[in-house]
Simulated assay, not measured.
Amino acid sequence: MPEEPVDNISGGASGGGQSTQFDPATAGTRAEAVVDRLGERYWQKAYGGQAAFECLVRTILSQNTSDTASQPAHDELMARYGGESVDLVDALADAEQSTLAETISGAGLYNQKSEVMIDAAIEIQAEFGSAAEFDSFVKDESPSVVRTRLLDIRGVGPKTADCVLLFAGGRGGVFPVDTHVHRIARRMGLDPPNADHEAVRAALEANVPAEKCGFGHTAMIQFGREYCTARKPACLDGPEACPLVDQCDQVGIDEINETAVDPVDTS
């Protein structure tokens, strides 16, 4: 079974959480069966344990860019502003925007992201006082309260809020939906072709047991990178090329003409 990649919003093996196991034979829904099959191919893990504000920063960096680009930017940011004796909230609240932007330039949209991070740090500093207090809020308060508060921060959308709940808060039953998860769930027929990100999230959280949701998120992303890509999914090379073809409705896939379109274009 492969190791979880370091270039991953979860931070890989060093990003918190712990290995777990689940039995594919117990799947009660097709969505759960898909997650279980991915668990046979990839790592099996329960998430949580990241520092909440650093997780928020990492997730903001990952917006509209790849993990291979955002991870080095995160490392540069932590090298300049982090450290065991440093409160990251204070450090970014006091940061010069142009310097922070230069530090994270590898992640793209660096001017916008640096502004969002500084504004978030100032807001969190004013309300919670420190990174440690914000961490306690994320890990101890009810998930609905945390999610609502995170969504009030400028630049934080549902996927970012859910990643903080999952990777920092360790909350079961949270299934963040990015572009990979959104595409795969609809292409497989787990959700209607025209379902938006929030509809897909609600359906997956309802049909995948809480302890498997976090893994389902990271594994679907990996599957989307390796097999179920947007333009040329593996199934276009023949059904034997995709390990989950028997679970897939192939919505938007034209094997004869070897094309793939967004499932919404078929509805």
Rank of each mutant, 00 (worst) to 15 (best):
M1K: 13
P5R: 06
G11T: 09
A13K: 14
S14L: 12
S14V: 09
G15K: 10
S19D: 13
S19L: 14
T20A: 15
Q21R: 14
D23N: 13
A27I: 04
G28P: 00
R30C: 00
R30M: 00
A31T: 03
A31H: 07
A33C: 04
V35F: 11
D36W: 13
E40W: 09
E40V: 07
R41N: 00
Q44E: 12
Q44H: 12
K45L: 09
A46I: 09
A46Q: 15
Y47F: 15
Y47G: 00
G49E: 07
A51C: 07
L56V: 07
L56S: 08
L61Y: 10
Q63W: 07
D67R: 02
D67E: 13
Q71F: 11
Q71A: 11
Q71I: 01
P72S: 05
A73V: 05
D75H: 11
E76Y: 14
E76R: 15
E76F: 13
L77V: 06
R80L: 09
Y81V: 02
G83D: 07
S85T: 15
V89S: 10
D90T: 11
A93S: 12
D94G: 08
D94Y: 05
L100E: 03
E102C: 01
T103Q: 08
I104A: 04
G106S: 07
L109M: 15
Y110T: 01
N111Q: 13
N111W: 10
S114P: 04
S114E: 03
V116Q: 12
I118Q: 04
I118G: 06
D119C: 01
A121N: 05
I122S: 13
E123T: 15
Q125H: 14
E127Y: 06
S130L: 08
A131P: 01
A131F: 05
F134K: 01
V138K: 05
K139M: 03
P143Y: 13
S144T: 13
V146L: 01
T148L: 11
D152G: 15
D152Q: 15
R154H: 13
A161N: 02
C163N: 12
C163H: 12
V164P: 03
L165Q: 09
L166V: 09
L166E: 04
L166T: 09
G172Y: 07
F175Y: 14
F175G: 00
D178P: 05
D178L: 10
V181T: 03
V181F: 03
R183S: 06
M188R: 04
G189D: 04
G189S: 02
D191Q: 13
N194I: 06
N194F: 06
N194E: 14
A195C: 09
A195I: 08
D196Q: 06
R201W: 06
A202I: 02
A206L: 04
N207M: 05
V208H: 09
G214T: 07
G214P: 02
G216A: 11
A219M: 02
A219L: 01
M220N: 01
E226I: 00
Y227K: 12
T229S: 14
T229H: 02
A230Y: 08
K232F: 10
K232T: 12
P233S: 05
C235S: 04
C235L: 02
G238P: 10
G238D: 07
G238Q: 08
P239D: 14
P239Q: 11
E240T: 11
A241Y: 04
L244K: 03
V245E: 14
V245P: 00
V245I: 13
Q247V: 00
Q247F: 12
V251I: 15
V251H: 07
V251S: 05
G252M: 12
T259E: 14
T259K: 15
V261R: 13
